[in-house]
């Protein structure tokens, strides 16, 4: 009796989800004129482009070396300043350090807002204020990494072991003492690791800042492409790739040592 009443559950919901998804993709594709046909037409052009990149113009290497170094410098300074700026904000955001929500909630809101602003927009605005050059790029990287590091760090602070914090409160420590002896020793390795991670991201970001005039290798890439010098663009892309891979590798090794 009981067994006979078993019916397959309704699956309308699942089918509807699928139909919605397919319709969404199709409508999106129509709206932006994205068709496989376009891709097939475009692919040969892509091939020509790649063909023109070979062989890369090796003689251009000495010229791009300095902007490449500048890119790394932008990332280094921007990451450090952003990282320093992130510390007080991260502490103010963490509920276990700052139980007073009237402080932590607005600070979180600011952080989230900063994180929605694209790095290139930061760069464009700073270029308008401070003029074309690496300084504007450095400021853009600073604000960008500030948002990233502050968010990661406050999440790390919130997940630290509460035991030492309780012990510090029990012995009558004030807020500053609590942070210095209870929070920092635990959060420090995470923070350093995020700093390195942000540096990796920032080197990549800094390599395209030049597109809006904020210094670094991107400016030369833009210029080479504008002059249809694809052999030069190729060497720039290759060098960027090598530098980024080397930095990623070094940073990964260092981070593994930290944690």
């Amino acid at each position: 009796m009981k067994a006979a009443t078993i019916e397959a559950p309704q699956r309308y919901k699942r089918y509807l989800t699928w139909i919605f998804f397919v319709v969404l993709i199709v409508v999106c594709a129509i709206q932006t004129d994205v068709t496989p046909y376009q891709l097939i037409v475009g692919l040969p052009q892509m091939g020509t482009l790649l063909a023109e990149m070979v062989p890369p113009d090796w003689s251009y290497l000495p010229t791009i070396w300095k902007p490449m170094v500048e890119t790394i410098q932008i990332a280094l300074v921007g990451t450090m300043l952003g990282g320093i700026l992130a510390i007080p904000f991260a502490l103010l955001c963490a509920y276990n350090v700052m139980p007073n929500r009237t402080v932590s909630v607005p600070v979180r809101l600011i952080l989230n807002l900063v994180r929605t602003v694209p790095d290139l927009l930061f760069a464009a605005i700073f270029v308008a204020i401070f003029g074309i050059g690496p300084f504007a790029g450095m400021l853009a990287i600073m604000f960008f990494s500030f948002g990233l590091i502050a968010k990661l760090t406050f999440e790390a602070i919130e997940s630290i072991d509460p035991g030492p914090l309780e012990a510090m409160t029990a012995v009558g420590a004030n807020k500053i003492q609590l942070i210095v002896f209870g929070v920092l020793p635990q959060a420090m390795p995470h923070y350093m690791s995020y700093l390195l991670y942000a540096f990796e991201v920032n080197v990549r970001a800094a390599s395209v800042l030049g597109l809006v005039g904020a210094g670094g290798i991107g400016l030369l890439l833009d210029r080479s492409l504008g002059l249809f010098r694809y052999d030069r663009a190729a060497i720039i892309i290759l060098l960027t790739l090598v530098i980024v891979l080397v930095i990623d590798y070094g940073s990964t090794v260092l981070r593994r040592k930290l944690l």
């Binding site: 475009g42 692919l43 052009q45 892509m46 482009l49």
Partner: peptide, 8 residues
């Protein structure tokens, strides 16, 4: 460069 400027 391959498919022209635009969303695609």
């Amino acid at each position: 460069k391959a498919v022209g400027p635009g969303s695609f």
